[in-house]
């Protein structure tokens, strides 16, 4: 109880080594928890590989994805064309790489737009409350109830087809879940005991907003974003498939599926390639998102791995 405090140089040194500031401890803990979750780790690695392949497509692709060579129509896989060629004699592997690039960039732009709208609105609604909260949430309800495909068709009917319209429509319709989840989190968090305790400790409002409310609400948003991006990818692919997203001859998973549709009986392998990539990406995203959820959220972390003490 009243034990004399003994602080040798050695254990001060140990403490320094153990000392983690909040950022690194948060990150380290997340990474540690992710490492122990094998499926999520594999999912994350596959995603990372696909992202690298997509963004390095101009360097890695063996052929120009738009180069038409009618004499090489519908070739089987060979050394020159590892996955064969399509109905216009274009290299499928190269097209698939560029398609990954287009699809991922489109999806990421939409996600970034959703977050850029949803996060500030959710924070304001939760913090300020009252009439402003009501207004924002009703706008969110409207955004949620609008069917995105219908709006997109209407926009394209008026302005003509362009991939920009798809990005804009999805950006302005799909931000609502983030605003909603953040609002509810902020409302819950600002009544927590530790927020009042931080105030009692003499901390500023900005500190409380970032260190307490920010830190606790960022994880659910990251998790939601990881799970939502797979649905964005699916929608982008389907809009491109029906011709209101990315336009041919540019490569996109949806465009490739749509082009291969005519050869489904003669050369079914053509439709398999983009489909396989979509399935892999969406599957990996979902597995990774679930893993991230377990790694990030402290209440579920308890049963996943409680032995970690931050060393």
């Amino acid at each position: 109880m009243f034990r004399k405090q003994v602080l040798t140089d050695k254990n001060i040194e140990d403490m320094k080594n153990n000392a983690l500031d909040s950022r690194s401890s948060f990150l380290k803990r997340t990474i540690h928890n992710l490492k122990s979750n094998k499926p999520a780790l594999i999912g994350g690695m596959v995603l990372l590989a696909l992202i690298v392949i997509g963004f390095a497509a101009p360097l890695l692709a063996p052929h120009d994805p738009l180069e038409v060579e009618t004499s090489n129509r519908l070739l089987s896989p060979s050394l020159q064309y590892p996955l064969g060629t399509d109905h216009m004699g274009r290299c499928i592997l190269s097209r698939l790489m560029y398609a990954t690039r287009t699809s991922l960039i489109t999806a990421l732009i939409i996600l970034a737009g959703n977050l850029a709208i949803g996060i500030p609105l959710g924070l304001i609604a939760g913090y300020v409350g009252g009439k402003i909260d009501n207004l924002i949430m009703r706008v969110a309800d409207i955004a949620l109830t609008f069917p995105s495909s219908l709006i997109l068709l209407a926009v394209i009917g008026i302005f003509g087809t362009n991939v920009i319209y798809m990005i804009l429509v999805l950006t302005f319709l799909w931000w609502a879940p983030y605003a909603r989840i953040l609002r509810s989190l902020v409302i819950k968090l600002k009544e927590q005991d530790f927020v009042m305790a931080a105030e009692a400790a003499g901390r500023s409002k900005t500190y409380i907003a970032f260190k307490h409310i920010g830190l606790c609400s960022i994880s659910p948003v990251i998790v939601l974003a990881t799970l939502k991006i797979s649905s964005i990818i699916m929608h982008v692919a389907s809009y491109s498939f029906i011709g209101i997203g990315t336009q041919a001859p540019n490569a996109d998973w949806g465009v490739m599926l749509s082009e291969s549709r005519e050869f489904i009986f003669t050369r079914p392998i053509l439709i398999a390639w983009p489909a396989i990539v979509i399935v892999i990406v969406v599957l990996c995203l979902n597995i990774f998102g679930e893993g991230l959820k377990d790694a990030l959220l402290p209440n579920t972390r308890m049963n996943a791995n409680s032995s970690y003490k931050g060393d």
Binding site: A19, L20, S22, S25, F26, Q192, D193, F194, M196, A197, A198, A200, A201, G202, R203, K211, H212, L215, C216, P298, N299, G310
Partner: peptide
Amino acid sequence: QMVFQNSANMFNPYFTVKQIIMEPIN
């Protein structure tokens, strides 16, 4: 200063004991 009533959400779940105790040292 104040010692708060004990409850499960007395401390931020992302804070270590060190960060919790350090908070009032401004």
